[in-house]
């Protein structure tokens, strides 16, 4: 049951990535890059918050 679901999910994902003459692969890469930068910003924000708490002057 479970492997079948995973397999069909992966097939659907591959189907999406290669459609529109594989434009979707490029668009997905762009979205992932943005997600990476967004997560990095969140981490940076929390780090700075931690430093601000250490030295609340």
């Amino acid at each position: 049951m479970m492997p079948n679901l995973l397999q069909s999910l992966s097939e659907a994902a591959v189907g999406f990535l290669v459609s529109e003459a594989k434009f979707n692969a490029t668009a997905t890469v762009l979205v992932l890059i943005f997600l990476g930068i967004a997560l990095y910003l969140i981490r940076l924000d929390r780090k700075i918050s931690a430093i601000e708490k250490e030295d609340p002057s």
Binding site: N24, A27, L30, V31, F34, L35, A38
Partner: peptide
């Protein structure tokens, strides 16, 4: 907002 408009704008 940036993520949704990025996705909508591309797809």
């Amino acid at each position: 907002l940036v993520l949704t408009t990025l996705t909508a704008g591309l797809f």
